[in-house]
Amino acid sequence: MAKTGKRTAAARAAFEGKNNLSVAEAVALIKANAKTKFDETLDIALSLGVDPRHADQMVRGVCALPNGTGKTVRVAVFARNEKADEATAAGADIVGAEDLMEAIQAGKIDFDRCIATPDMMGIVGRLGKILGPRNLMPNPRVGTVTMDVKAAVEAAKAGEVQFKAEKGGVVHAGIGKMSFDEAKLAENIKAFVSAVNKAKPAGAKGTYMKKIALSSTMGPGVALDVASAVGE
């Protein structure tokens, strides 16, 4: 049996018996026990009452976090001519067309967000099996297929987070760094929960938001009081 370190044991003890906490209580508990040598990410996981295998129960959207993610986001843009220039001027890290497609097909995927102008979707469509499983496929529903590449690049760089219900109806995301103060983390949590709540699909039956859990990268998880988290 693997030996549990002192820090891990102490964190588990601090979290023991703690459930259905308010956002403020959960953030305070997690911050107090995030003691690694690197700046951990605050992760959120929402268990939803949906089956994403059905089109009318898919949950997908985007959330502009009020305080950003604390992470440097690398953005790739499929565009030509003046739109390519616009993307570069807005701060895109990679801009291209067929050359970018070939790089991705060769396994070079060194970006966190992919944006495309509508006329480029014929090329981007060939990458569905590569980008889709990584949640990187441009999609007009989340604003990543657009002619306004400047706004899309700037939003991605500012800390906009995309979300999508995965198998089992779980949505998860990194929504800040543990170096953020408690108020900023709480604001990000509330904004993300609100965005997922507003994305409730027409086909959802029964309880939509079943469970919300928070954790730091290396720490234990703690469950929020769903009603208060949604209502805050």
Score class of each variant (00 low, 15 high):
1 M>Q: 10
1 M>W: 02
3 K>I: 05
4 T>P: 00
4 T>S: 06
6 K>L: 13
6 K>M: 09
9 A>I: 06
13 A>E: 15
13 A>W: 08
18 K>V: 00
18 K>H: 06
18 K>C: 02
21 L>D: 03
21 L>S: 07
22 S>I: 01
24 A>P: 00
26 A>C: 05
26 A>D: 01
28 A>I: 08
30 I>W: 01
33 N>E: 09
34 A>P: 01
34 A>Y: 01
35 K>N: 14
37 K>S: 13
39 D>E: 14
42 L>M: 12
45 A>S: 15
46 L>T: 00
46 L>D: 04
53 R>H: 10
55 A>T: 12
56 D>V: 04
57 Q>M: 03
58 M>Q: 15
58 M>A: 08
61 G>F: 11
61 G>Y: 09
65 L>D: 04
65 L>Q: 00
67 N>V: 00
67 N>A: 04
71 K>G: 00
73 V>D: 06
76 A>V: 05
76 A>C: 11
76 A>P: 05
77 V>D: 02
78 F>D: 03
80 R>C: 05
81 N>T: 15
82 E>V: 11
83 K>V: 09
85 D>W: 12
85 D>Y: 14
96 G>C: 09
102 E>F: 12
103 A>E: 11
104 I>G: 04
107 G>F: 07
108 K>R: 14
111 F>N: 04
111 F>D: 04
113 R>N: 05
117 T>V: 13
117 T>M: 04
119 D>V: 05
121 M>A: 13
121 M>I: 11
121 M>D: 09
121 M>Q: 12
121 M>K: 10
123 I>Q: 09
123 I>Y: 02
124 V>H: 05
124 V>N: 04
125 G>E: 10
127 L>G: 01
129 K>L: 12
129 K>P: 02
130 I>V: 13
130 I>Q: 00
131 L>M: 10
132 G>N: 07
132 G>F: 01
132 G>A: 14
134 R>P: 06
135 N>E: 15
137 M>T: 04
138 P>N: 08
138 P>R: 09
139 N>T: 12
140 P>D: 10
140 P>Q: 13
142 V>T: 15
143 G>T: 10
146 T>N: 11
147 M>D: 15
148 D>L: 06
150 K>E: 12
150 K>V: 14
152 A>P: 05
152 A>C: 12
153 V>W: 03
155 A>M: 09
155 A>Q: 08
157 K>P: 05
157 K>Q: 14
163 F>E: 03
164 K>R: 15
166 E>F: 14
166 E>V: 10
167 K>E: 15
167 K>S: 14
169 G>Y: 10
173 A>T: 02
174 G>T: 11
178 M>Y: 02
179 S>D: 10
179 S>I: 14
179 S>F: 07
180 F>M: 02
182 E>H: 01
183 A>G: 02
193 V>I: 13
195 A>E: 07
195 A>G: 07
195 A>K: 10
195 A>Q: 11
198 K>H: 11
198 K>Q: 15
198 K>F: 08
201 P>E: 13
204 A>D: 11
205 K>S: 14
206 G>R: 13
206 G>I: 14
207 T>E: 14
208 Y>L: 07
209 M>G: 01
209 M>K: 05
209 M>T: 03
213 A>Q: 14
216 S>H: 07
217 T>I: 09
218 M>V: 11
223 A>E: 11
229 A>P: 01
229 A>F: 02
232 E>P: 00
232 E>K: 03
